[in-house]
Structure formats: C-alpha cells, structure tokens
Design a binder for these strands. Structure first.
Lengths: 129, 129
DNA sequence: CATGTTCTACGAATCAATTCGTACACAAAT
DNA sequence: ATTTGTGTACGAATTGATTCGTAGAACATG
C-alpha cells in the first residue's frame, strides 16, 4: 500500500492544503500562510509538521539547515477519503444526499450549476455508451 | 438564536443519527443501535448522552425512571453546517468541487444522477424566474 | 421486606490533539 | 570572537473526548 497512515486531523489538513497549494515550503512559509487565517505560534506549527512527518503525511528535505517540506499524500486521494467518510457517517452512504445538501445549502453560482450539469451529462453518456 | 451550541463530535453525531432515525428513545435503545456497528459500554453511551444534554444537543423527558431522549437540533441544519465546514476547510469554499469529488469518487446510480439533474433544473428555474 | 435487575449520576483514568517554553545548533553581521 | 537572528528538537502542560468503575435510587418478583 502506498499510503499506510491515511488520516489527518483538522489542523493537519490545514497544513496539507498549504502544501498542496504552494508546493515544497519551509515551516516559516507554512506558518505565515496559517497566520493569514488564524492565530498560531511558530513552534506549534513546527511541532505539527514534525508529527506529520512521523505519520508520513509529509516528507522533507533536511539536507540544509532550513528544512523543506512536501505533502506525501495525494490530494485527490485524501479528499476522496474524507468525502467518503462523510457520506458514510452523515448521509447513510448516499452521495446524492450529500450533493443535494451541499447545493441546497448555499448559493452556488449559475455557472457552477451549469458545469455540474455538464459533468453529469458526460457521466451519463459514458455510463450509457 | 435557536441553537446556541452547534457542534458535535464524531461519537455525538452517531448518536444524533440514531435519534433522528428512531425518534425519542432510551439510552438502552441507543446503546443497542450503536452496538450493531461498534463496541461500546453502556455507561459510556449514557455519559455521552448526558454530556449532549449539557450541550443542548438533545433534550430528555426525565419524568419517569427511564429517561427518554430526543434530538434537540434539526437534522438538516446540523448536516448543512457540517457540509459547509467541509466545503470551506477542504474545498476552498467551492461547493462544486465537493460535488464533483463526491460523484466522481463513487458509483452513483443513473437514477440518482437523474434526480440530481432535475434538482438542478428546478434550482435554475427558480433562480432565473 | 429481601433480593436481583435496571437504571442514572458522577468522578476519575486514559488517550489524542494542540500549544508552548526552553535548549541548543548554525550562520551572518558587527 | 561575540552578538543577534533564525532554525530544529523535544518535553511538558493543557485541553477535549472518550471510557469505565462504582455507588445508589427505583422497581419488580418471590
């Protein structure tokens, strides 16, 4: 199996999102990105990332003084798992219920709705081909 | 505000799901339902539900010896919040990304896809009216 | 009414996540 | 060479969730 430990806490996910978005980065960069949103101490961020290293959520290049971290798991894979867990735990296994909740819930732009419809059309065509 | 404390842990959500599904129930009934899925001690379940009472996630009728619990928060409201949080935290605020992840992720039946499309049509008509 | 069963209440142990202080390494600048 | 700045490492405190043992109330049954 490629990814032995696949589970991340809320905080770890925040950091992973930064890694996915900004590519290989230092602790300081991550910390700065986090600070944009929330209050956070530098060593707290550092510790979190060290723990994530132990969990193999990230890898790092420690050949220089300033270590450079990279996400060690695939974004799509991780998000897929999260969504699947939510479908199972919250929506009794029905993806449709989740989708409707997500769309009904908030104001999604007409453009986005159009894109989703197109996506569904393609999905139907492939399935029905 | 109707619902002061709106946040539930994973375990609490499991219990809420039972309450929503099975209506007013006793601790024993909840415990039995939980046991179907997972290992759980009776007093553990009891304690959890007592804590949920403090958090106002549930209410109870304690007029008799055996207390009867009811969910104190609306299912749709709670699930909406959970989904919204996931959209914000995991999908940078885009409901569409979540929807596509959810649908791409797993096999959704053609009927369900059809229902979603109809739902989207209605949504468009209302918006465009 | 004595006994066994079923319940609630509650304190305390455990476990995990998070936070932060402190120590020490290294390098650049004075 | 000393000082200053920026890093990593790591132990320990804190906080929150979960688990469970134990005690005592309520009640049914013989």
């Amino acid at each position: 199996m490629m990814h032995p430990h696949i589970k991340a806490t809320e905080s770890e996910l925040e950091i992973l999102n930064i890694l996915w978005r900004e590519g290989p980065v230092t602790v300081r960069q991550v910390h700065e990105a986090l600070s944009a949103t929330k209050e956070a101490g530098y060593t707290t961020t550092l510790k979190l990332m060290q723990i994530m290293l132990e969990k193999n959520l990230v890898s790092r290049d420690a050949s220089r003084k300033v270590h450079v971290y990279t996400a060690a798991i695939d974004q799509g894979r991780m998000k897929g798992q999260i969504v699947q867990r939510m479908i199972d735990n919250v929506f009794s296994g029905s993806a449709m219920q989740l989708v409707m909740q997500a769309l009904g819930n908030q104001r999604t732009s007409p453009e986005e709705i159009e894109m989703i419809k197109q996506y569904l059309d393609e999905k139907q065509n492939i399935a029905g081909a």
